[in-house]
Every structure is written in structure tokens, then in C-alpha cells.
């Protein structure tokens, strides 16, 4: 499956920034998401009702299609862990404070996880396949997997990605309970467009993606993933990883440290930050001639392992 366009909104200056991978570092990490000017993209009435997760999704959609205005996406697929969590909490608040009185339905309507994908379909007036995957730290990988399946089924120009917003109360508690120390709390969106048409010169291709839940032994999953793709660790030019502990995962300690990137340190910790890693990998493949094969190793949650192999041909 070939990726022809991508867009990222993150805690870094990534939106519509070609070759951002050559510029960003832990030092350029911003305290909050660097949002684009939504007023140029979304009409004011709609914009007021939308949460960040929806706005980021729409802005990324627009950026993905900027150079492909003639394309009608054959499918829209979104991965989100929390959806519009800000509206979920807002609606809970209004239930409590209203004491049985009238409450506004807007936060309820906007709180469903598929509001992002639904609003994209409305934005594009798109009647095609539309799905939302919500699987913890593997929500992005499942959206990518769905796209990969659809591509095999013959669907062209699939728009897929992930979006998660930061909501302070929820996030603070999540991190407290996961007992993670010194994390940067992140948020962001990452969207991509596929094509079945091969380019004459260079192509960015998703070779394989594998989301695994309830995992006990990550090592054997990694080896069998590499075997299936006829790869050894030596064939990989870079591994972008996230880890549930603050250390380099044991599976990767033998890999040269200068070829390992802890992507959570670049984009912050949130359940769909592998979407950022995927976009970062694509930008690296496009702009660094020596890098031809990248593995995204997502072990943000101890029992979940997402493996994605992206290559340049």
C-alpha cells in the first residue's frame, strides 16, 4: 500500500512542514499542540461546536488532499482512543449541574468516538466506507490495518489516520494510574492518503502492520513479524519505538543506539502517538536518502504491541 500524502498536527511544528523530521528534536517539543488556523478551514458555526480532536482531524484531512483536489477518498478510517473526551466530560458536568433540567445535546452528539470520521465525511460530502477503531494504544494501528485490508480488497485513495485531544482531568488520572514518571503529556492528529498507482521514481510503501493485544511475549511476536516480512534487524535502517517503561525495550537493546528513536520524547505520550511516529517515518524516508526501511515499535502499554514496517522503494 502506497502513501502519497500525509499531515500531522502535534506538539512540534509539523503541520504542512515538509522535511520537519530534519528539524525537530526533544528540544523543540512544545508545551501544547501547535494548532493551525482553523478559521481558514472550518466555518465558524461548526467550529464552535467542535472539539480539538475533530478540528485536528478536519485540518489534517484538508492538508492531505491539498495537492489532490480531484481525488474522492474511497474510504475514511479513524483511530482514536479517547475520541472527543472533552465533550464527554462536558456532558457529564451538565448532567450533574442540571439536576434533571434541560441540557444542551451538543456535547453528547459530539462525544461519540466516530464524530471525527463522521465530520470528515460531511466535510468532504463523502458517501463511502467510514469506520472508527478505538483500541487503546493500538487505535492507530487498527485504522492502518483496516486501510491495508481495504487496499487489498481493491479500494483506492483511502484516507486514514488518528486523532486524540488532551483533556486535563482525564489525562492526569490516566498517567497517575499508569504510574508513569516524567512523561510529556501529548496530543495530536496524523492523517494519510493511499494510492494504488505506483510512482515511476520513488514510492513510500507500508509493507506490513500488526496490532497485538493481551501480549505476554513481545520478543517472539517481533521475531515472527520480521520472519514473515523476510527481514532481520540488520535490514532496518531505523526503529522508532515507544516503551511502557522509560527505558529502551529489551527487544531492541542489541540494536545500534544511534538508529533508535524514542518517538514519545518527540511528540509526547498519548494513545495514538504511533500515528505521529508513522508520519515521522514517512517524512524521514522522503528526505533522508540513506534511510530505506523503518520499523515502528509501539509498546506504549505493556500488554499491547504494534509493529509497522514502512519502506521506500
Amino acid at each position: 500500500m502506497r502513501i502519497i500524502s500525509s499531515a500531522l498536527i502535534s506538539h512540534q511544528d509539523t503541520y504542512k512542514k515538509e522535511a520537519f523530521s530534519e528539524v525537530i528534536s526533544q528540544e523543540t517539543y512544545l508545551e501544547s499542540v501547535l494548532h493551525p488556523e482553523y478559521k481558514d478551514i472550518i466555518p465558524p458555526m461548526e467550529r464552535r461546536r467542535m472539539t480539538d480532536a475533530v478540528k485536528m482531524g478536519l485540518a489534517c484531512t484538508k492538508a492531505c488532499l491539498d495537492n489532490f483536489s480531484e481525488i474522492t477518498p474511497g474510504a475514511i478510517i479513524v483511530g482514536t482512543s479517547m475520541g472527543s473526551s472533552a465533550h464527554t466530560l462536558k456532558f457529564l458536568d451538565s448532567i450533574i449541574t442540571s439536576n434533571g433540567g434541560l441540557i444542551s445535546p451538543t456535547p453528547f452528539i459530539q462525544s461519540t468516538h466516530n464524530t471525527i470520521a463522521g465530520q470528515i465525511s460531511l466535510f468532504l460530502k463523502n458517501n463511502r466506507y467510514n469506520n472508527t477503531h478505538t483500541q487503546n494504544s493500538l487505535s492507530f494501528e487498527h485504522a492502518l490495518f483496516d486501510a491495508y485490508l481495504l487496499d487489498r480488497e481493491g479500494v483506492d485513495h483511502i484516507l486514514f489516520g488518528s486523532s486524540d485531544e488532551s483533556e486535563n482531568v482525564l489525562f492526569d488520572l490516566f498517567y497517575y494510574l499508569r504510574a508513569k514518571k516524567h512523561v510529556k503529556k501529548g496530543a495530536g492528529a496524523a492523517f494519510f492518503l493511499t494510492s494504488k498507482q505506483e510512482n515511476t521514481d520513488e514510492n513510500i510503501v507500508v509493507k506490513s502492520v500488526e496490532p497485538n493485544s493481551n501480549v505476554v511475549d513481545t520478543h517472539s511476536i517481533l521475531s515472527s513479524f520480521l520472519d514473515k516480512n523476510e527481514k532481520t534487524m540488520d535490514d532496518l535502517d531505523l526503529i522508532l519505538y515507544s516503551s511502557y517503561s522509560n527505558n529502551i525495550p529489551e527487544d531492541l537493546v542489541a540494536f545500534p543506539e544511534n538508529k533508535l528513536v524514542d518517538y514519545t520524547s518527540l511528540c509526547g505520550d498519548y494513545f495514538t502517538n504511533s500515528g505521529f511516529a508513522f508520519g515521522y517515518a514517512i517524512d524521514l524516508l522522503k528526505h533522508r536518502p540513506t534511510v530505506k526501511s523503518i520499523l515502528v515499535y509501539n509498546n506504549l502499554v505493556e500488554t499491547n504491541l504494534g509493529l509497522t514496517l514502512i519502506e521506500k522503494h
Binding site: 468516538h113 466516530n114 467510514n130 478505538t134 497485538n212 493481551n214 501480549v215 505476554v216
Partner: peptide, 12 residues
């Protein structure tokens, strides 16, 4: 006792 491919669809 099921592990591996576990997904949740959420389209209201």
C-alpha cells in the same frame, strides 16, 4: 484466552 488481533469498532 484470546490474544493477538483484538479490535473495537465505535461508530455509534
Amino acid at each position: 484466552g484470546i490474544s493477538g488481533f483484538i479490535d473495537t469498532s465505535s461508530t455509534a
